[in-house]
Amino acid sequence: MGILEVKGVNKRFGGLQALGDVNLSVQENSVHAIIGPNGAGKSTLLNCLVGKLIPDSGSVMFDGQSVLGRKPHEINQMGISRVFQTPEIFADLSVLENVLIPCFARRDGAFRMHAYETVANERELRDMALHMLEDVNMHDKRRMLAGSLSRGDKRRLEMAMCLVQSPRLLLLDEPTAGMARADTNNTIDLLKEIHAKHDITMCIIEHDMNVVFSLAQRITVLAQGTPLVEDVPDRIKGHPKVREAYLGEAQV
């Protein structure tokens, strides 16, 4: 049994079958990559995992509990964090505040009426957030408005916001898209380090094969809403079905 078990998930958008009978099993403490051409349904699958979408049928179990029907914040409190394809951050807040908010969510749960104490006095959480910012090399930008960051920095910030929660499962939707080469390499190193240090299970969607092959222990190839193959990276590389899915149209 994996920590995440997706069974027979279907999702239609009008006439379009975005997900057709998807099965996926992510083992605890592994890095599992999902690859596939544009429009394959990768983001849709993640949406079904975090409560943004509800599948038409099928089941999604996280650590033995169903996530279906739960609200996004409840799913996050179960231990699933997600980095979005287009960065979702608090643009009007400072970088430090962006990282502080998940710290509060982790310590105090989905709601707590702490209206009298000041944020400035929360030493412990501030240290935690500042350490996280150091880890992603953004310590010197902590006072900037998050909305004024570059695209790559926004991604790194969003990743820091997820990592600081120490989630049990981290979902990453193209975490390196829009990053410069050097930043991409830093991100790979960061994810490797986090994975080694904190036993975080990761499920990563990525177009950059360099990233996929240097991180993933297992890879699932998704095409037109259905998993084609699932295997270890070495056997995915030369797999004929994968070539077909990616290059299919080109060969015709």
């Binding site: 608090f90 709601f111 707590r112 009298y116």
Partner: peptide, 26 residues
Amino acid sequence: IFRSPFGMMLRAVKSNQQRLNYTGLN
């Protein structure tokens, strides 16, 4: 209230409610 964690959450609501949801806050 403005300087409290509660106030910060309220500003986060204004800034990006979506992100707040996926950060485990209601």
